[in-house]
């Protein structure tokens, strides 16, 4: 068995990961049901006003909602805990007194965190798309350029939009890994990225940063705004990828160094 499979095996057995998975799977259909039972529409969130017109609006509504705070939380539930949990259970000495090196253990844990984040993202995307289509059908969607987009193309754009969230999500994964290793505390590993994400959102909301807000890790969560259109623009997506890459490298390099040099006490 590879180290990665061992990490995934242990992730699957953890109650908190199971709960996160269930929320990602059941949250969107529940939201869809609540919305279709209500008379009003969530007009303050993008695509909220179209939720009853087209089933493709729900996954984008969920995306707009999730991108602001839920996605950093989703990734930190796994990535912020996957290292610190060994401190909590006193299991570093069990892991690091075997035949595998620390670098191998670091890589496997990182891979497991990325895979888990990816899975949770895909589950939320799939579940909200299916729920939307089931509740409101596959009518054309009014995109952000004011034109109607046919269901087939719109489905592709919805999936692409969700996939674009992976870029900042990996940045948050790296941040959570760093906090998890540096603080040795699951609380800081899970809560830290969430708090930092909220602070970044707050900074953006104040609007005082101007274009400098593009350096924040939360900004790429909105890069999909350029995709759900007749003529998509990808600028924010590439910028977001660059910004996230800087965050990923800036977090993972010290994280790995700390773990490799650390005295397990």
């Amino acid at each position: 068995m590879t180290l990665l499979r061992l990490e995934l095996l242990r992730l699957r057995a953890q109650p908190r990961v199971r709960v996160a998975f269930a929320i990602c799977l059941l949250g969107p259909p529940l939201l869809g049901l609540v919305l279709s039972a209500q008379a009003g529409l969530p007009r303050d969130t993008l695509f909220g006003r179209h939720v009853k017109e087209s089933g493709l609006a729900l996954p984008l509504l969920v995306l707009g909602f999730a991108g602001t705070w839920a996605l950093p939380l989703v990734t930190s539930i796994v990535a912020g805990d996957i290292f610190a949990t060994e401190d909590g259970h006193g299991t570093w000495q069990s892991l690091l007194t075997r035949s595998r090196t620390r670098a191998e253990v670091f890589t496997a844990k990182l891979q497991a965190a990325v895979l888990a984040s990816l899975t949770l993202l895909a589950v939320t995307a799939g579940s909200s798309l299916v729920a939307g289509l089931a509740l409101a059908g596959d009518q054309p969607l009014t995109g952000l350029s004011g034109t109607q987009i046919g269901a087939g193309r719109a489905t592709g754009l919805v999936l692409l939009s969700w996939a674009s969230e992976l870029v900042p999500l990996l940045g948050f994964t790296a941040l959570a890994v760093l906090l998890s290793i540096a603080t040795r505390s699951s609380l800081a590993g899970v809560g830290g990225p969430l708090l930092i994400g909220l602070l970044m959102q707050l900074l953006s909301l104040l609007g005082a940063l101007g274009s400098a807000a593009n350096a924040l890790l939360t900004t790429p969560f909105a890069a999909w705004h350029g995709l759900v259109r007749d003529d998509p623009y990808y600028g924010p997506l590439w910028q977001g990828a660059l910004v996230s890459l800087v965050w990923v490298v800036g977090c993972l390099v010290p994280a790995r160094r700390i773990l490799l040099a650390r005295d397990i006490t």
Binding site: L144, N214, G226, Y233, G235, P236
Partner: peptide, 16 residues
């Protein structure tokens, strides 16, 4: 029917 021009959303490119 809902009037599409009564209230609507859009986004602009805020990239560098």
């Amino acid at each position: 029917r809902t009037n599409p021009l009564s209230e609507f959303d859009g986004c602009l490119d805020t990239g560098w």
